[in-house]
Amino acid sequence: MRKAFVVISLLLLVVFALQFVLAAVGGFTRPTGDDAYALHSVNGMVVIPILTVVTALFAALAKAPGRLIALAILPIGLVVLQPLIAMLAEASTDASGVSTPLGLTIGGLHALNGIIAVHVVVGVHRAARKLAGLAPTDARVAVRETEPA
């Protein structure tokens, strides 16, 4: 079950990386329309939450420490925050619907929150590898241990 936890956490990491690609697809789509970010939205609001729950479930089944199980479920909270940040950014336009510096700054927090979520998933994957005994050994530690005092 621990190796399955490693695999599912890696899949979650890949899907998060794909999320950035899909955001870029939306950003570079011309002409821009409401459906430019459709794949980004579906991945972020359906695929990522489902895989996050499955990852946390696998963490629990792998008898991971409670802290790791909590860390595995944390991306859901960060994903829930994403549309709220986007709505705040959209609401911060001027009377003619043009972006304001405040709205753009808030919109930037959407990307920052995504980076934080990826960082969390990287941590979950590393911890899953360690739990499964698949983490590489730290060569620096081995060198220090063999050096004379």
Score class of each variant (00 low, 15 high):
131 L>I: 03
56 A>Q: 03
105 T>E: 12
108 G>T: 07
1 M>A: 15
47 V>F: 10
98 V>T: 14
32 T>I: 12
55 T>N: 06
72 A>K: 01
63 K>W: 05
75 P>D: 05
111 A>T: 15
79 V>W: 03
48 I>W: 00
142 A>S: 14
34 D>P: 12
27 G>H: 08
84 L>F: 13
12 L>T: 06
58 F>G: 00
79 V>C: 03
29 T>Q: 11
40 H>W: 05
47 V>S: 04
23 A>Y: 02
26 G>A: 11
12 L>D: 00
2 R>M: 12
67 R>I: 10
24 A>I: 15
7 V>G: 00
45 M>C: 02
70 A>E: 03
125 H>M: 09
73 I>R: 06
130 K>G: 06
57 L>H: 04
73 I>D: 00
42 V>D: 09
49 P>I: 03
21 V>D: 08
34 D>R: 15
15 V>R: 00
3 K>Q: 15
138 D>R: 08
95 A>N: 08
58 F>M: 13
67 R>P: 01
121 V>T: 07
27 G>E: 10
141 V>Y: 04
11 L>C: 12
77 G>D: 05
2 R>F: 01
132 A>S: 12
59 A>Y: 01
27 G>D: 10
35 D>G: 07
127 A>L: 08
138 D>T: 11
71 L>I: 02
14 V>Y: 09
96 S>W: 04
124 V>L: 05
134 L>W: 12
59 A>W: 03
92 S>F: 02
87 M>K: 10
77 G>E: 07
104 L>M: 15
132 A>M: 07
115 I>W: 09
137 T>S: 12
59 A>G: 06
49 P>L: 03
147 E>D: 07
11 L>D: 00
149 A>E: 11
92 S>P: 00
133 G>R: 04
131 L>H: 11
45 M>A: 10
117 A>V: 06
100 T>C: 07
148 P>Y: 03
49 P>G: 04
84 L>Q: 12
92 S>K: 08
5 F>P: 00
19 Q>W: 04
118 V>S: 11
95 A>G: 06
105 T>V: 09
38 A>H: 09
109 L>T: 09
31 P>S: 04
7 V>T: 14
88 L>N: 10
132 A>L: 07
120 V>S: 04
82 Q>L: 10
85 I>G: 03
130 K>I: 06
114 G>N: 05
23 A>M: 10
145 E>S: 08
107 G>R: 07
135 A>Q: 13
54 V>I: 15
49 P>D: 05
12 L>R: 05
89 A>L: 03
85 I>H: 01
62 A>Y: 05
133 G>T: 04
75 P>E: 02
49 P>V: 01
19 Q>L: 08
130 K>S: 14
28 F>M: 15
10 L>R: 09
33 G>Q: 06
122 V>D: 03
17 A>W: 10
23 A>N: 04
97 G>V: 11
92 S>M: 13
1 M>H: 13
89 A>H: 05
